[in-house]
Simulated scan of single mutants.
Amino acid sequence: MKKKIGLLVCMCLCLFCLTACGKKDQTDVDYNGYTYDQLKTACQNTVQQLEEMSDEDMQKYLASGDDITVGMVSGWQESRKDLGNFEGFGDCEVVKSGKTLTAAQTVNYEKRPLVLTYVFNYNSMEVTDVTVDQVYTTGEKMSKAGLNTLICIVTVFVVLIVICLVIYAFRIIPFLEKKFRKEKEVPADGAQKAVEQIEKMEEKKDDLELVAVIAAAIAAATGTSTDDFVVRSIKRRR
């Protein structure tokens, strides 16, 4: 049993030694014709230029139309504000991944550090992007993640409540339709009454004309005047 444990420890030590030997110091690597110090100096010079740049110069760069320049200056303006005074440079990390090379320079300020990152196309060493980001602590990252989770949960519940209200509204629609129909029927009944009143007035007018004709006929047949008699009523036979 002791031999097995000793063999396992030896294997772990051998693997660690191989890993340590195979790992290269990034300061001694040739990055397609550029050294670590050159990339670090480029990042630090950019930070110094941004620190010394006036608002008027920044507006000119923002209006230049160059996507990389506009992105770098706008990212600097957004990330740099409310961080306090410049305190110095931190570590610069250069990493090659496939056809991409990144050089990330940490910049220390009173409240929190920034990281300015150059992104290169390794084959041509052409700058493809420059980003500026604030460095957050683990607690701040967890707080942001928790806040995002809470917002997502609240959004889901709000959507579910809206869906429930829409479904419940389908029950109210038939009652609203009935009420709307009744409101439409009221003007129809009023119009019908008005038509009936007009018809009665026309019938009454016809009766008066008929009474006058009958009275004139009787007066002519009897040789009397229409003032001597009165027609009390007329009965129609149908």
Rank of each mutant, 00 (worst) to 15 (best):
E203H: 00
A169F: 09
D207G: 02
M1N: 13
C17E: 07
K23M: 05
A104L: 00
K200H: 03
L114Y: 01
Q77A: 12
I198T: 11
Q192M: 11
T224K: 15
M1W: 11
L39D: 07
E196Y: 09
L50F: 02
K60Q: 15
T100Q: 08
T46N: 08
T131I: 09
G75Q: 09
C12Y: 05
D133K: 15
E202I: 14
Q59P: 06
I173G: 05
V132G: 01
F86P: 00
L62A: 08
G190M: 05
L83N: 06
I163C: 13
M53Q: 14
A194S: 07
K81D: 09
T138V: 14
K178Y: 01
E126G: 03
Y109N: 02
M1C: 03
D207I: 10
D28Y: 01
S225C: 11
A220V: 04
N123Y: 00
L13E: 00
L50N: 04
C164M: 14
N148H: 15
E177W: 08
F89L: 04
G146H: 13
F229V: 09
T35L: 00
A221Y: 13
T27H: 06
A63G: 02
K205A: 04
Q48H: 15
A191E: 10
C10M: 14
Y118H: 05
T226R: 15
R232D: 12
E56V: 07
R232H: 07
Y168F: 06
S143H: 08
I172D: 03
L150H: 08
L101T: 02
Y34H: 02
G190T: 07
D227R: 05
G139A: 14
K205F: 02
A103C: 02
A217V: 13
V158W: 10
K184I: 06
C12T: 10
T149W: 13
N45P: 09
V154T: 11
T155S: 14
D207E: 10
V132H: 04
A103F: 00
A194H: 05
P187Y: 06
E93F: 01
V159Y: 12
T128L: 11
S225K: 15
V94E: 00
L116W: 02
D55C: 08
M1E: 15
K204L: 07
T69P: 00
G6N: 14
V230E: 11
K179I: 03
L39E: 01
K144S: 11
E110V: 05
D28K: 06
D37C: 02
K200P: 00
D25S: 02
V73M: 05
Y109W: 02
A215F: 00
F229L: 12
N45R: 03
Y118S: 01
D189I: 15
G88T: 01
